[in-house]
Design a protein around this nucleic acid. Structure first.
Lengths: 139, 139
DNA sequence: GCAGAATAGTTAGATATCTAACAACACGCT
DNA sequence: AGCGTGTTGTTAGATATCTAACTATTCTGC
C-alpha cells in the first residue's frame, strides 16, 4: 500500500522466514520468531511473569499463553505459580531452554551479517537511527 | 530477536494497525492491509489473474483465494472465468471497488506523512535507499 | 469486614496465513 | 490420439494472532 511500508513488510517477512530456517538448521523445528523472542527474553531476564513477557514481546496475553504452551510442551521452559499472588505465573528456562543461548547468539549474528552485508559501519548506524525515528513517529 | 529486525517488525505492526484504523475511519471495516494491496493493484492494473495477484502481493495462491473471497463478498471486485483457459480467473474492480481509489490515495498520504514526520527530504531518500539495500540482502 | 474495581492468565471464537493435496485443464512429445 | 508433465485456483488442515469474555484473586475505600 506504500513503498516504504511495503519494503519494511517484505524485509520483515523475509527475516522471519530466515529465522525459522536458521532455527530448523540448528535442530529446532516448529518454532517461530515470537518463540525466539520469548527464549531470548528469558535468557537475559532469567525469570518473568506472563504479563511481563507479553509486554516485552508486544503480544497480547492470549497469544503469549499459546506461545508459552508450546514452549513448555517442547520442554524449553517451565511455569511456576507465585506463592504471594496465586494469579501470577512465573516462567523460567529449563536446561534445554538454556542450551538455546548459543544457538540464539549464532542466529542473531548470522541474521545481522546477512541484513547488513555490504553496508559500511556509518550506514548501519544511520539505518538504525532512521528506523528508530520512524517507529517513534508511528507508535 | 535482533534490534534492527525488532525495529522493523514494530514499525510494520504499527503501520498495519494504522492502515486498519484509517480504513475504518473511511467507512471500510473488516479489511486488512493485504486487502488494501489487492485493491491498489487492481486500481493500477484494472484486470489480473489470481496468479498475478498472488505474486504481486507476495502471498500464496491459497491466501489470495481467501482474501479475494472476502473482497468479492463485500462487493469490491468480481471474478470472471477466462474463455481461453478455464483454469484461469480474471479479477476486476466493481464500481464500489473503484470508489476505493481516493480513499487509498488519502490513506497512503496520511501514512507516509506520519511515518516521515520530522524527516528532511534527504533523510527520506536515504531511508528508502537503505531499506532497498537491506531487502536485497535478505531476499 | 464488605462491596466494587482492578488484575492475571486462560478460554473461546474468528481470521489471515501457510503447506499440502487435489481436480480440472493445457501443453508437448511420441 | 494418448500419455506424461506442468499449471491454475480451490480445499482442507494447522497455527500464530487478535478480541472478548471469563474465573479467580487481589486491592482499595468505606
Amino acid at each position: 500500500m506504500n513503498d516504504s511500508i511495503a519494503l519494511i513488510s517484505r524485509i520483515r517477512e523475509n527475516a522471519n522466514k530466515l529465522i525459522v530456517k536458521y532455527l530448523n538448521t540448528n535442530g529446532i523445528e516448529g518454532l517461530v520468531p515470537s518463540h525466539g523472542d520469548i527464549l531470548a527474553f528469558l535468557i537475559s531476564k532469567k525469570q518473568c511473569t506472563m504479563n511481563e513477557l507479553a509486554q516485552s514481546i508486544h503480544r497480547t496475553k492470549a497469544t503469549t499463553t499459546v506461545l508459552v504452551d508450546k514452549l513448555e510442551k517442547f520442554g524449553f521452559l517451565e511455569r511456576q505459580k507465585s506463592v504471594n499472588d496465586s494469579r501470577v505465573t512465573f516462567l523460567t528456562l529449563t536446561e534445554k531452554g538454556q542450551n538455546f543461548k548459543p544457538i540464539f547468539e549464532k542466529i542473531s549474528k548470522d541474521l545481522i551479517d546477512k541484513l547488513y552485508q555490504g553496508f559500511t559501519n556509518d550506514e548501519i548506524i544511520a539505518a538504525n537511527k532512521l528506523l528508530k525515528k520512524m517507529l517513534k513517529n508511528i507508535e
